[in-house]
């Protein structure tokens, strides 16, 4: 696959916690306008791998963004390279409202140097109008929102700041069918805008439907990366369960 420079390359990533190799020599890459699925059982290391990209964990290995080597030591560094993450836990402060969460860490300020809550709410209304037109609870703390509404706040936060690289950690795990469909449509739309997406999931069918390629992990190691059009559900399942690529599966 040498069409152009990859948006992201992670090479020989390693991290261990208390002697356990959570991620062991894993390399993955992502191109503009592409969705790469990360598959594996719970504990296979997919979330851990991706947290090294979003700055939540520091491991070893080389990360390249647009072909340039970068150092990502914390979430602020990741944001600097337009890497945005939608965490499985959503990472929302439940006691704050949607606007405060959307702009957390990147608040809009008045010329006097104070928080411009009104401007932040106005911007939040705009983007939510696009993502989830039914959303109305702008002054309630996000703890008062439904699962889908909370999800849309988390998505809005990632999309609002011109993400180039988007990491979605099981984005549909807590959603109903209708909202899942909305997320699928959003992914298509973001793809069309040239954004690269890492989609972490353990639902093989979702990956088959949404992704262009899939990297499968097992016990912290990379089993292999395949083009989705070349494989079947069963091939992917075989990789996840047996840890074998389709070629070597007998």
């Amino acid at each position: 696959m040498d069409k152009q420079t990859p948006l992201v390359e992670m090479k020989n990533m390693r991290i261990s916690f208390g002697g356990v190799h959570a991620v062991d020599d894993v390399s993955v890459d992502l191109y503009p306008g592409e969705v790469v699925g990360l598959l594996g059982h719970n504990g296979a290391g997919k979330s851990t791998l991706i947290k090294m990209l979003s700055g939540a964990y520091q491991g070893t290995g080389d990360i390249y963004v647009n072909g340039e080597k970068v150092e990502i030591h914390n979430p602020r560094d990741a944001r600097k390279y337009n890497i945005e993450t939608i965490y499985q836990t959503l990472a929302l402060a439940d006691n704050l409202d949607a606007a405060a969460n959307l702009f957390l860490g990147r608040e809009l300020m008045t010329p006097a140097g104070t928080l411009d809550d009104d401007a932040m709410e106005a911007e939040t209304r705009k983007i939510m109008g696009r993502l989830n037109p039914n959303f109305q609870k702008f002054s309630a703390p996000v703890s008062a929102l439904s699962g889908g509404q909370r999800q849309s706040v988390a998505i809005a936060r990632a999309v609002y700041f011109n993400a180039r690289i988007l990491i979605m950690d099981e984005p549909t795990a807590a959603l109903g069918p209708h909202e899942t469909q909305m997320v699928a449509e959003l992914i298509q739309q973001l793809k069309a805008e040239g954004i690269g997406i890492f989609l972490i999931d353990h639902d093989v069918h979702a990956v088959m439907e949404l992704c262009d390629r899939a990297s499968v992990m097992k016990n912290g190691k990379l089993v292999g990366t395949v083009n989705i059009p070349d494989v079947t559900d069963d091939d992917l399942l075989g990789m996840i369960i047996l840890g074998k690529t389709p070629g070597e599966a007998a």
Partner: peptide
Amino acid sequence: GRYIYATGGNPEAAELSGI
């Protein structure tokens, strides 16, 4: 102030937001 309340509400989220 905003960071104080965010950290109180969800320390992990605050950390992930770069606070």
